[in-house]
Design a protein around this nucleic acid. Structure first.
Lengths: 182, 182
DNA sequence: TTAAAGTTTCAGAAATTACTGAAACTTTAA
DNA sequence: TTAAAGTTTCAGTAATTTCTGAAACTTTAA
């Protein structure tokens, strides 16, 4: 298998963006290639195709599995492990969001919670705790909202995301009709 | 000025999270310290407090300014530049989201758009373009939605984010009452 | 002007992160 | 059992990123 220039451009771009998305270059390339390949690929194919050492591919696979972004597939009469993306593009986005939340928000929330348990000892600490409280509440609200979105069906979520300025209108409606309920 | 252990713990945590949030350790520390300090700080104070070289602080300030996260302040009869966080915690979150969108999503959207302009040359490319199309649409929907949220007032946004399962109900309502409108 | 107070730049050093490849390990089937 | 096919681990190396500190620059006021 030899990939076309266009596909290669996409794969290389995934590599460059990799670190910004939370993994490193080679892992980004591996995932990019798997996503746009119709056929599942073996670790050796990934290694040859991307010119990455076999060991590195193995580590990358482990990482992608820990993100739950790829899954193993077996072919009858073939001992090799074949890898393909786990789930739809939609699920992919969901997983990436969730993993990143775990890495980027949860640790901070937990530090802030701990810190807010202790009474402030002086004026500086009063101000500091105040700010920490604000940040804590904001992160908690975001986390809650994100969880809510993740729980919705893709269809409903798409409807919501495409509402545009309708969101505001719908919110007003909610005030009108549901003030006592929900 | 000497900071308390609790405050230091927060600042150091910001440093550790820094790279996950899109900047590096020292920049994370600098921003953390500025956020929880009631008083604006000079570059020298940041340098001493965090034991970071003066040059590094200067580069960090430039970076934080490019994210529009801090602003300069002057005191009468004092030539030094004092720095403080720009805007509320709320605005801070907004800016970080927006900057990250620029760095993490926009380049990919633009690559995908370019790629989708060319007709596929063979079966692999048909499949690949299909996937790229899916990704493109998803990223565009997310970007649109994010922009919509950023345009809302903090109050309205808070209401929305705290709606919980009410979001689904409100969406159903929209179908009921606005089918022809909006 | 000039010197003092302050800021920025950037080449090189230090620290961190990613990658290789050979050796160790595991699984399967003959 | 054992050897072949395949996977994983990890010590050492390479690449990248971050940081320092001294020199260059800018601004202000005497």
């Amino acid at each position: 298998m030899i990939i076309s220039a266009k596909i290669e451009a996409f794969v290389m771009h995934c590599g460059e963006m990799g670190s910004r998305w939370g993994f490193n270059r080679t892992i980004g390339q591996m995932y990019g290639l798997l996503v746009i390949s119709e056929e599942a690929l073996t670790a050796n194919e990934l290694s040859e195709q991307l010119k990455i050492s076999r060991g590195n591919v193995s580590m990358g696979i482990k990482e992608l599995q820990s993100w739950r972004l790829i899954q193993v597939q077996h072919k009858p009469g073939d001992r090799k492990e074949y890898y393909r993306p786990a789930g739809s593009i939609w699920e992919m986005a969901n997983r990436i969001f969730e993993e990143r939340r775990k890495r980027e928000i949860d640790p901070t929330l937990s530090l802030l919670r701990d810190n807010l348990l202790n009474a402030p000892a002086n004026n500086e600490e009063i101000y500091a705790q105040d700010k920490m409280h604000e940040i804590h509440d904001l992160l908690e609200t975001i986390t809650f909202f994100a969880g809510e979105l993740q729980g919705m069906s893709p269809e409903k979520l798409t409807t919501l995301m495409k509402l545009g300025s309708g969101i505001g209108k719908v919110l007003d409606m909610k005030d009108k009709f549901l003030k006592s309920g929900t």
